[in-house]
Design a protein around this nucleic acid. Structure first.
Lengths: 109, 109
DNA sequence: GATTGTCTCCGACATCTGTGGTAGAAACTT
DNA sequence: AAGTTTCTACCACAGATGTCGGAGACAATC
């Protein structure tokens, strides 16, 4: 999905080539993923170029992230606090990070 | 695992009964989960009471959460920042929360 | 000691995900 | 038109996870 979100719309081939050259899967692997995502209505065909389908995301990156994060938070009881605390405790999130996010928050009114 | 972490040590039966009465699975379901977790070395037997095994967690809740969170962050490029930003933007994390975490951080220096 | 209840052990089945092979249609290339 | 490349449509398979059933061992009870 990440690739499709970046490209806006793309064919299987384009998605494949958008992946980092190292671990790049087989063409059919991407195709299968696309087919399954289509069944799940995360993306859909928009048209054909030659005999190839072109797809567009059906859900925004933001919406998907939202659901993902919300599901993840459910593992911690639904509140983001334990997560943040853990990040801070493990040193993955510093005071400076917090300050930064904070000022962004204030800036955006 | 959550139940086992709370109980410290427990038999399959105890784990089963520690689950919320509503969606409580079959005894054997819990047993299977325990068996698989054992294979993954997340827990291990400590002794027997009657003919029942008693288990203890092999990894701490904290360690497990750490790995979980770290894996999750990898989805966002490994940095916690995008996650925090998203939480703030979606209103799930307020300025007050940040302040609070911050003061905790400073307190623990 | 036969009955009943409780465990363990093992197998089973569905769904999801990652990965890719095959067959046959379509569209270029000579 | 014949050959080659490129797609789509399907099938397959392995591992993880959620859910459970059956067989047989053990123990408690009648």
């Amino acid at each position: 999905m990440e690739a499709l979100w970046s490209l806006g719309r793309a064919s299987v081939r384009e998605l494949l080539e958008a992946l980092p050259e190292e671990r790049r899967p087989a063409y059919t692997t991407v195709q299968t993923i696309v087919r399954r995502l289509e069944r799940k209505e995360a993306l859909h065909q928009v048209r054909k170029i030659g005999n190839a389908h072109v797809y567009r995301p059906s859900i925004s990156r933001k919406a998907a992230y939202g659901r993902l994060i919300s599901d993840f938070l459910d593992l911690f009881g639904g509140s983001p606090r334990p997560l943040i605390s853990h990040l801070v405790e493990s040193g993955q999130l510093g005071l400076d990070d917090l300050k930064e996010v904070e000022s962004e928050l204030v800036a955006h009114h």
